[in-house]
Amino acid sequence: MDFTFTDHERALSKRGRDFFEQVLEPLEVVTDEHGELPDAERAPLRQKVRDWGLAGINLDKDHGGMGLSMVEQTLIEEQLGRVTNGLWSAVWRAPVSLKFGTDRQIEEYLIPSAGGERRGCFAITEPGAGSDPRQVQTRADFRDGHWRLNGEKWFVTSYNASDFIIVHAHVDGDPDKPTLFLVDKPDYYTAPPNTTHSRSPKFMHNFAYDHAELVFNDTPVPADKMLGEVGQGFELTKDWFVEARLQIASHALGAATRAAEIANAYATERRQFGRAIRDFQAIEFMLADMAVELYAAKSMLFRVAAEIDSGADRSLIHSHASALKLHSSEVAGRVVDKALQILGGRGYMRENPVERLYRDIRVDRIWEGTSEIQRNVVGGRLRKMGMSLYSDVA
């Protein structure tokens, strides 16, 4: 088994690292101070993504993307994950569910999304529905030639960087009919007709774009804006979750690697009691544990990416992606926490990247499926398939 990356793969990783260092890292402090990426920086940053050849990272060439394998995507995403304040989200990923749209929807939404001319956000979570999508109360009813959406959505990430929303609703209020709908916005900041942007609350981390709360009040949606078939919404969302969980794992480990590198360098430079603090076993053991956890988690990350590229069974991929998201997000939390401890008071200063990474990384155990939900997925698969699903080498 050859774990050596090709020259092409290493070049993609370097491009991601260079983009982080030259384009994204200089925007970290201003984004943190502003609470979001300032408006004046948004259009120039979109153009830089195109100029650097990073547009359409997750799409094939027929859809206007880069045609990268999952391993190649992961190599780039891991390097982007080094940045704080969610600035990695500036390198957009068109919603994977759009690939299952009609030819017209692909032309109208997917291909422009690949080039950054359009951008979509997902509206799934609700005040009473998160981990259990069957509890979704947003409903879609077909009347007078249009679908009508009614309900409330929370945590609509990148709403103010998007010009359309993919809304998860239950047709006729029936949880056995989960369905996705494409809702156009007049522009990045204006809500669609009969839709209220209630607020964009502040969170523990600062993020490049917002996490909006929306209320749909008989919002009209043309008949041809339904994505997929009635009742297919959960299946299309599951495909998105698999991709999102790999992306989160990549970003989490990129962030943890950066924190570990900063802590490792500081442990050599910082001297107390006449010697470098890394000479004290307490610090040395923390660094060793950080290195081992990163090594194991990254091996898992690229194994799952390679399984996707090999065309492995969809159910297997879903099972392994859950395990990966669980493990990587929790490893990252432990590594960044140790890094901050090694840095001491300096690590607690907002001007220090590790402080921002500490705030950023916490949400990775929550969004796109909490750690507890991932354990439910893994446990359920063990009950059905047995331990070999995770323990076999083949």
Rank of each mutant, 00 (worst) to 15 (best):
F216Q: 01
H168W: 11
S198R: 15
I165R: 02
L214K: 10
H205D: 12
D174V: 09
L180S: 02
V156W: 01
N150E: 10
R143K: 14
R139P: 00
D163G: 05
V183M: 12
Y188K: 15
G145V: 07
L227Q: 09
V230H: 03
L214Y: 14
L180Y: 05
D176L: 07
D187I: 10
S200T: 12
A212M: 09
D176T: 15
F181V: 08
D144V: 07
L149D: 09
D141G: 00
A223W: 08
D144C: 03
N206F: 06
W147R: 07
P201H: 13
K202W: 08
N217Q: 14
T219Q: 02
S198A: 13
F203I: 04
P192N: 11
K202G: 11
S162V: 03
G151D: 03
Y209E: 11
N194I: 00
D210T: 12
P192G: 06
T190G: 03
N194V: 00
D176C: 01
S198D: 09
G151C: 04
P192A: 11
G151L: 11
G173S: 11
I166A: 06
G151H: 07
M226D: 00
N150K: 11
M204E: 10
F164R: 05
W154I: 13
V215P: 00
K225Y: 00
V171P: 01
D187C: 05
M226Y: 04
L182W: 08
D187V: 09
K202R: 14
T190Y: 03
D174F: 05
F216A: 02
V230Y: 04
Y159C: 01
R199S: 14
